[in-house]
């Protein structure tokens, strides 16, 4: 008979149930993050930073130190921590807007400088917290509050290919991957490799996680999974793009 839920040890039970919407992918990504922290035994060394956007709701998610920053600014805050205290394991947690729009210069430059931090970016194709506006990752033709007739790529460009970009600008030693909440075992492995990359100090580590926003997508569970597994993967290829010690393009 199980009396306690099977939460990662690094989760802070006192703040559960967490603040994310029913069916939100953040819970899944943060579960994978928590399990990786447990398995690597680094809970006491973690400095977790969250962006503004839905990711801000994770500020008290873990039994680790955590800093809630500004929209797009988590990467520099955590870079600041890491530069001053290299013994800390720094995770910058953000959404697609934070990483690819307002904070893209920080992502690009942290990656270029090969900062020894781990960026985990949750891609749900829209701005969730502000009410479902078009994001850099909104799919072509996808309806959002600011693309009510569907995203017109002629006018607004194509979905940002984040890991591809980061992979192109990081040197050997960095880790870059795109996982999905539809394949949690794989996503967890990617996050673990990202954190190991930071632990080994070989380079920047970046994982984009394809995730769901049933609230703004206005999808039921079936359509939610369908969108993540079938629609999103048409544009966002799941897999590792750069692994320390391995040739590129795996």
């Amino acid at each position: 008979m199980a009396l306690a839920p099977n939460m990662p040890k690094a989760w802070r039970a006192e703040t559960k149930p967490h603040k994310f919407c029913p069916g939100c992918g953040h819970g899944l990504v943060l579960k994978a993050v928590g399990e990786c922290i447990d398995e690597l035994g680094i809970q006491d060394r973690i400095v977790f930073g969250c962006d503004i956007g839905c990711s801000l709701l994770s500020w008290d998610f873990f039994n680790t130190d955590a800093i809630q920053t500004h929209h797009g600014r988590t990467t520099p805050v955590l870079t600041g921590v890491k530069r001053a205290r290299p013994d800390r394991i720094c995770i910058a947690y953000m959404g697609d807007g934070g990483g690819y729009a307002i904070g893209s210069q920080h992502l690009v430059n942290a990656a270029s400088r090969n900062e020894k931090v781990t960026v985990i970016l949750v891609n749900n194709c829209n701005y969730g917290m502000t009410g479902g506006q078009m994001a850099p990752t909104t799919l072509p033709g996808m309806k959002t509050e600011t693309s009510p007739y569907g995203r017109d790529v002629e006018a607004t460009g194509n979905p940002t290919q984040g890991p591809e970009m980061v992979s192109a600008i990081t040197p050997e030693g960095a880790y870059v991957a795109r996982g999905t909440t539809a394949n949690l075992r794989q996503l967890k492995k990617m996050i673990k490799k990202a954190l190991e990359t930071q632990l080994n100090g070989t380079g920047f580590s970046f994982v984009e996680a394809l995730s769901a926003c049933p609230t703004n997508w206005r999808t039921n569970a079936k359509d939610t999974w369908n969108f993540v597994e079938k629609e999103m993967t048409q544009y966002f290829k799941v897999g590792e793009l750069k692994v320390p010690g391995e040739k590129e393009g795996k």
Binding site: P76, T79, G80, V81, K82, R83, A84, H106, N109
Partner: peptide
């Protein structure tokens, strides 16, 4: 850093870490 926004935020990060 890449700009002043980042310079300010990295400074905040450094201070958080006790520097």
């Amino acid at each position: 850093t890449e700009d002043e926004i980042s310079a300010g935020f990295t400074t905040c990060g450094g201070v958080f870490s006790g520097a």
